[in-house]
């Protein structure tokens, strides 16, 4: 098993115009919180709040492209959104392995995304399986 309990992975993810516009073009979520600056500010935010599920895209990329083994499948995932993410935010992502089940080749990670101020904007857990 290439994965070990306690293994840690770090990456940076940038919420670019391309990511933001691509998400809207794909999923059609144009809720004003995400698209109307004045609306978002009127509700106490600094600007348009990025869709939380953009972070799920980053998670998908991490699992699918950044691990040392590409023979992986996401089995389950939990995510909490703690603070808003804004356009052009650079997010520091960390994932640590919390459980490895050799018998069924399953690996569990806990992860966090931190904003430029170092605050956790999102956290959760992912369980993956290693394909035979």
């Amino acid at each position: 098993m290439i994965f070990k309990n306690g293994d840690s992975f770090d990456r940076k993810f940038l919420v670019t115009e391309t990511v933001y516009n691509g998400f809207i073009a794909t999923f059609k979520d144009t809720n004003p919180l995400h698209t109307d600056e004045a609306f978002a500010i009127a509700h106490g935010f600094e600007g348009r709040v990025m869709h939380g599920n953009i972070l799920n895209g980053f998670l998908s990329y991490f699992i699918g492209e950044c691990l040392p083994d590409k023979n992986v499948i996401i089995l389950s995932q939990e995510i909490q959104f703690k603070k808003p993410v804004y356009l052009h935010d650079e997010l520091l992502f960390n994932a640590q392995i919390t459980n490895v089940s050799e018998a069924v080749k399953a690996v569990e990670f806990k992860f966090t995304f931190k904003n430029p101020a170092g605050k956790v904007v999102s956290k959760g857990q992912i369980q993956i399986g290693l394909l035979a």
Partner: peptide, 8 residues
């Protein structure tokens, strides 16, 4: 797939 979840 559920077998993995059950064993874990």
């Amino acid at each position: 797939l559920n077998h993995i979840q059950l064993v874990v």
